[in-house]
Design a protein around this nucleic acid. Sequence first.
DNA 1: ATGAAAGCGCTAACAA
DNA 2: TTGTTAGCGCTTTCAT
Lengths: 349, 349
Amino acid sequence: MPDTRQKLTIYDIAQLSGSSPSTVSAVLNGTWKKRRVGEATARKIQKIAAEHGYTTNLQARGLRRAQSGLVGLILPVHDNRFFASMSQSFEAQARERGWCPVIVSTLRNPAEEIRTVETLISYAVDYLFIAGVTDPAALSEICRAAQVPHIYVDLPGKDAPSVVSNNYLGAELLTRKLLELMPQVDDPARAKPYLIGGLETDFASAHRISAFRSTVLELRGSFDEDQIITCGYAPGSAAREVSALCDRIGGLPAGLFVNSIRAFEGIVSEFVHLPSESFEKSVFGCYDYDPFAAFLEFPVHMVRQNSNQLIAAAFELADSGVTDPVLIQVDPELIPPRTVYNGPFSQLG
Amino acid sequence: MPDTRQKLTIYDIAQLSGSSPSTVSAVLNGTWKKRRVGEATARKIQKIAAEHGYTTNLQARGLRRAQSGLVGLILPVHDNRFFASMSQSFEAQARERGWCPVIVSTLRNPAEEIRTVETLISYAVDYLFIAGVTDPAALSEICRAAQVPHIYVDLPGKDAPSVVSNNYLGAELLTRKLLELMPQVDDPARAKPYLIGGLETDFASAHRISAFRSTVLELRGSFDEDQIITCGYAPGSAAREVSALCDRIGGLPAGLFVNSIRAFEGIVSEFVHLPSESFEKSVFGCYDYDPFAAFLEFPVHMVRQNSNQLIAAAFELADSGVTDPVLIQVDPELIPPRTVYNGPFSQLG
DNA sequence: ATGAAAGCGCTAACAA
DNA sequence: TTGTTAGCGCTTTCAT
């Protein structure tokens, strides 16, 4: 391995091989077949390049070609099971297609989202995947102005194709399961199922709440708005709210639909103070899957969103060049208690 | 917002403002003060650029300056609490410094690691953070040849600065805790603590195992190698191994040190078949923190690695320009059962 | 205080 | 089959 202090360019390789920069360029970027560079010349150049550890300057190529080979994914946070597994899938599939994935989180901060999209565009990303942002319209506008094709994942955009989880279906399945398993309780306030967590302003939560409401109404014939407690996603507020609920109705409700793993985390931290028997007259559901939540003291039915399928569908749309605002839905899965889900990357850790 | 079909360049802005490209360049990249561009000229150019939605082409800038403004982080997987929170911290701190973070995972695959480092170098990353790879030496060599400063996080490199978790300390704390709480059991095979999960070839695991061995020896006066079961990180194999262990020693051991959250996941999936009383004569520890694992039926003591501090220390080294192979250790924390840990990003979800 | 011009490394006409 | 050349958009001497 020669210690090339200076980075080599195609000009260096041209010199060393006695051919011209354009021939070297063609050989090294794979277009030499159709440029009809001689087999021998090609071999020689490849050999020299390899020996000297030549690597293409992708900035220069990108500048010239007016594209970068980068594909971006914007998500709210890395530190979340659903989004992290989305990252994993995104990366694998981007690589498969010869793209270099760039994953950035914007913390659900509108200004940060805009700044980030602008930065990625400045780096000439070839395609942008957008998941879980607050203002899709603003981002679409920026992308449109810069002519960057983009797609929304897990939330619908009206100016670009979208792939979303079928939140209505997932919530309906979970609600039906709860209603099916809920024990008979005398106190009417405790006999009803409650939904806790999330925000109705959030697209996904809105659909889940709507499914919860309709399904309860359909199967029970009545529904009160006090059965819905939208307190956001933070564990702390869910903990406070569930505790307030129990105070209000004098114990745990017969059914509890927790609308996010983070909220569930907070709720469990409250539950830990209760004796085991408290859970006997209740059934729990959580919209999100977590392997450990599957093994709590009380059984928890969970919905697992198929992030891998979301990303796969998005890549298919990207590949096919669709730019119209089509909307594809991906069905989530109801996961029973005590189940270890095996995902595409589960052998790793 | 004018619908500029074509992306504007500094030449366009120069025309529009009646000044030269070099002046526009200086104004728009912030060096105009020291280039002594007139206040009025500067204002005018900035105004025009803003009105037309000009954005710098970072590829062109990068090519010219021979740097990109990108800073890379290489990790094994995204889909893991520890690494995901590392991503979150990395991103926040990179942004703070005006860098654009690029986070990629290489699935502990040596070839992929090398390919990835080469790709990032081709994009002219200014700095590289490397966490959890299999062959640091090879990567250092590539970085050195390309003159890319880099730092290792969570594993030590011998040719570059490193920031690592104090795995020995963490494991020692956890082992001491287990030994302190382990109940008296008659059967000698069940009276000993066991460690399960991980690989001794892995730097972090090696240190943890070493601490486990020494601490047990110190406090108990004896140690058998059969107390260590290194079966990797996959849940499935940990599940099989723990079940084999229980068969062999005729029940749960008095103390079980699980060497990774993924292994613990598999173990818990076995435990779920056992009656509650089974856990009464055992104490559990897990090297990794998970909010739900904190609330299992039986108490679990956990070690939480401080990924935020690891990244912070690494950035400090990067800022200070250190390139010698110094090694900094960051202490992990022992977290008691039933504890919700609040991290720097815990209000998000 | 500002402009002209060269060039970063690569690609893609266009020539030969 | 291969070489010459003109840029991609920006920065940065060097002039003025």
